[in-house]
Write a protein that binds this DNA or RNA. Structure first.
Lengths: 340, 340
DNA sequence: GCCATACCTGGAACCGGTTTCAGCTGGGGC
DNA sequence: GCCCCAGCTGAAACCGGTTCCAGGTATGGC
């Protein structure tokens, strides 16, 4: 209650008040052992009396670190990054690191974000989600001594947490084939910009692979792509469902898009799953509510795991450029069945 | 390309390289006018040659600020806070401030978060979402000179961005009454802990107010509350729908809970809206997909507005403790109609 | 009783910037 | 030709911590 509003006490004030040197106060603050009990008590009293709170920023300058981990992600776009961020937040919550969040909805803001992180002393580490930074930025990061880990993206020089998107695409497609479907369409998403990590492309590859292995000829009119959004997916699905020989199943590269497919079917009076099977990807929260069959990827876990890897790197353990691949699961619900 | 890996250049190195004093380098860095063109060029060259990047942390210590805005929010729980955070991220994205995100899923972590922010030099400002900090923490914030703004919460000493929850509850209820409903139930949410801002309670008041004004007697068995989750809401709704005289309409204090009501109805084979009307609150993304009638509150806007108020306070404009009330809209979709 | 040792302690350098302040230079006015 | 002033510039103080290092004091062993 002795606090002087506006100007808070510094460590020197505490030292003076307690009649000791600043080094001793610092030792008490950091819980070092070699301080006599009596001295420690005097310092503690002084701290209380002056309502002293150490300046985090001064401390960090002295220590040459920021205790901040940056997270760069296309956050706004859809539920999956959010889930990953939740995993990151959770893992970081148990660490002494703060989390600085950078949303990059445009290529411009993305460039800005990467440039910022290349600056010295902004963050100690950075988690890059669903984005692959340009080579020069990776170099900047390295030269600035900023540890980096990729989540849902891959780069030779950096540790990454990923899934096998090719396999994921194949899992969904194989399942539909096993159900007896032959006319299977695919809706992927188009890259918004060059930096976006492109999992959808790999899922397309898996889709094509599964079809080929089952000796089902590819039909170009069944493979579409559009911006990652429910609305765009809906109109693409409408086109597909108006085809002379319309597909009996549609595999969407994300649950969000699968929702668009469901909407299209509903609008056209096509019953799911009786007349159309739909498979999504991700298993976001709403998928279970909608009873959507989907390929589950551990979104939350990817964030948590990425944060753990980064924390390890920060703790001095070699930030080995290893790739960690998370498991995929087919979750069968109510939007799939054998074709009529 | 002269960059020495591991040890980056400091301002003194640049000064030496360019043959000038550090003050001049600082002036160039900050774009001050009073530097001769030739000198400026030499400094710029030196910066490039040494791949110099100023230390944000040193700069901020010197400037006595952190350029960080903290956001404290119960992030994990549901879609609404996320939407608010998006608004904050957007508004802050255009400012020079970084955003440090603190999730508080437990009272313990919340206490920790508030304590942290009370520390000197951690953040310049703080945005508190859907939470009301204990009085002593508000005092700490004030004495540490940290600006604070509340979003979806109210406190006399702090600027707040809110909605009129009583009115919101009344809007939904009045609409159902106008449709002809008399047996209207309400599902609110229970506070998880003492710090959580309790909008649900106010919505209950609005609900009761509307009924009373319409001379419809309150029935205690129609008013329930449970943890804010789809699953809990579902089982509460099932109880309500099994009542001897079951309600013809249910108003849920959030869309998430309304989804649970829909699920319950579906499970019991009760048609919506033919046999049951459902109204939610918030208008989260999924509400439009589900065709849910709801009371829309500007979630994104609340975050953006809160951030703007904080930015103003940070810019030195009086952080007046004014309350900003955002508008509410009834969005009529497909889950409501007159009772059978 | 003496010395080596362990334990405390404080002064001062350091982290890497910003800013004050005083000094120097050069041009314009008379 | 002289003086005044404006425009540049650099040394040094400062932001608020941490830590190295040297010095002082008890304690234990012999």
């Amino acid at each position: 209650m002795e606090a002087v509003p506006g100007s808070s006490a510094r460590i020197a004030d505490v030292a003076a008040f307690a009649g000791v040197g600043v080094a001793t106060v610092s030792r008490v603050l950091n819980g070092r052992a070699n301080v006599a009990a009596g001295t420690r008590d005097r310092v503690l009293e002084a701290i209380k009396a002056l309502d002293y709170r150490p300046s985090a920023i001064a401390r960090n300058l002295s220590l040459q670190r920021t205790m901040v981990v940056g997270v760069v992600t296309p956050f706004l776009t859809n539920p999956s990054p959010i889930e990953r961020v939740r995993g990151i937040v959770t893992a970081l919550g148990e660490s002494p690191y703060d989390l600085a969040l950078f949303d990059v909805e445009s290529a411009e803001r993305q460039r800005r974000a990467f440039r910022m992180f290349g600056d010295a002393h902004r963050t100690d580490g950075i988690l890059i989600v669903s984005l692959v930074p340009p080579a020069e930025e990776i170099a900047r990061l390295a030269s600035a001594g900023v540890a980096a880990v990729l989540v849902d993206a891959r780069h030779d020089a950096l540790p990454s947490v990923v899934i096998d998107d090719v396999e994921g695409g194949a899992i969904a497609t194989r399942y539909l084939i096993e159900l007896g479907h032959r006319r299977i369409a695919f809706i992927g998403d188009k890259p918004v910009d060059a930096f976006r990590f492109h999992s959808s492309r790999d899922r397309t590859v898996g889709y094509e692979l599964a079809l080929t292995q089952a000796n089902i000829p590819l039909r170009t009119e069944y493979v579409r792509a559009g911006t990652h959004s429910r609305h765009v997916a809906r109109s693409i699905a409408e086109e597909l469902l108006r085809l002379p020989e319309r597909p009996t199943a549609i595999f969407a590269a994300s649950d969000t898009q699968a929702l668009g497919v469901l909407e299209a079917a509903r609008g056209l009076g096509i019953a799911v799953p009786d007349q159309l099977s739909v498979v999504g990807f991700d298993d976001i929260e709403i998928a279970s509510f909608m009873g959507l069959t989907t390929v589950r990827q551990p979104l939350f876990e990817s964030g948590r795991r990425g944060a753990e890897l980064l924390l390890q790197a920060l703790a001095g353990n070699r930030p080995a450029a290893h790739v960690e691949t998370l498991p995929l699961d087919l979750v069968v619900r109510g939007t799939t069945r054998p074709p009529a």
